[in-house]
């Protein structure tokens, strides 16, 4: 979204928004929320929304990182392995050396960046397709992690880490406390950073440009390798950060629990309108994509559908959404061809 600063462009921008994927997604999310709000007493409660945000923060954070890679025209599914490695390394070191908040985030982030850069190097320098590279690195990172860690859990995490963040506490009428926890805090920061990166920095616009037309980007002298390092490194960084958020919520480190979730994250980002072909996708759309899947699963439980069935509905939603998108895209192209 390139919302210009001047007022005159506001109306056309609004009109463009009305035609966008994000608009329809927003409508669907609102309809879902209203429907669930009317059908159940528990959906639109502070308690439920708080839990919803907290428990979906991990997927949401990763989705923001993956969005950047998809916009750049690549794909990466190794980030769950990256997260597992980062989590294990950072918290093992924290236990051994008594490290604090800053250090564990720095370590997890650095491990993530290194893994991301490995992907970027293979993809750009060896010109192997990004999906193949990331499937391979997923297996390499994960295999090595389990080999060296022996797949052992870490349950005795540092005290400060177990306590997490609990800022701006607020008690509701029933005396239930709420606060800004680590999950929500990081989720908000990551979405904000990703939005700033993509929309407010030159590099972000270059990422969109490269995703839209890679050849042209090369001809205009864009540093494709550097941009790739940035996007894959950024996803790695995000994966590292997300891994700590997940460990804090789970109150333990389990090396095997994250790998396998990569396609769920991909589904959320794609549902949010990002294209696998590159150049398309927004932070708002990604937020809505994550929200839609989260609300759907939460709502099904609230209206009394066994959680065993929730994945079926998620699959249906994905299938319907991608079909509608493809269908309308095809119709749009046909009508353009006639005009």
């Amino acid at each position: 979204m390139t919302l210009a600063a001047d007022q005159r462009s506001f109306m056309p921008a609004l009109r463009r928004f009305r035609r966008s994927h994000e608009f329809w997604l927003l409508v669907v999310v609102i309809v879902f929320c209203l429907g669930l709000g009317l059908a159940t007493d528990s959906f639109l409660t502070l308690q439920n929304l708080f839990d919803l945000l907290t428990s979906n923060a991990f997927v949401g954070i990763l989705a923001a990182g993956l969005l950047v890679v998809l916009v750049a025209g690549g794909i990466d599914i190794s980030f769950t392995a990256t997260a597992s490695v980062a989590q294990y390394v950072a918290l093992s070191l924290a236990l051994s050396y008594g490290l604090g908040w800053f250090a564990i985030f720095a370590i997890a982030g650095a491990v993530g960046v290194v893994c991301g850069l490995i992907n970027a190097i293979f993809i750009t320098k060896l010109r192997i397709s990004s999906i193949i590279v990331s499937i391979a690195t997923l297996n390499i990172f994960y295999g090595l992690l389990i080999f060296f860690s022996g797949g052992k859990y870490i349950t005795s995490l540092p005290k400060y880490f177990r306590d997490g963040v609990w800022w701006f506490e607020y008690d509701d009428a029933a005396g239930v406390p709420y606060a800004l926890n680590l999950q929500i805090l990081v989720l908000a920061i990551v979405f904000l950073c990703t939005w700033l990166l993509l929309n407010r920095t030159n590099v972000g616009r270059q990422i969109y440009a490269m995703g839209g037309n890679k050849d042209a980007a090369q001809r205009l002298g864009f540093q494709v390798f550097r941009l790739n390092c940035l996007v894959y490194g950024y996803l790695g960084l995000i994966a590292g950060v997300a891994s700590l958020v997940q460990a804090q919520l789970a109150q333990s480190v389990t090396p095997t629990v994250l790998v396998g979730k990569e396609l769920d994250v991909l589904a959320a980002v794609v549902l949010g309108g990002a294209s696998l072909a590159g150049g398309v996708g927004t932070v708002l759309g990604t937020i809505l994509g994550v929200a839609l899947l989260a609300i759907l699963q939460n709502g099904l439980v609230l209206v009394g559908v066994s959680s065993y069935w929730s994945q079926l509905f998620v699959g249906l939603i994905i299938l319907v959404a991608v079909s509608i998108t493809a269908w309308s895209e095809r119709r749009r192209r046909q009508s353009k061809a006639i005009n």
Partner: peptide, 18 residues
């Protein structure tokens, strides 16, 4: 060699301001 997903203004100014 244009960027289809960017605006007209961005495409014109790409060499200068990006």
């Amino acid at each position: 060699s244009l960027f289809p997903n960017l605006t007209v203004a961005e495409n014109i100014a790409v060499g200068r301001h990006l």
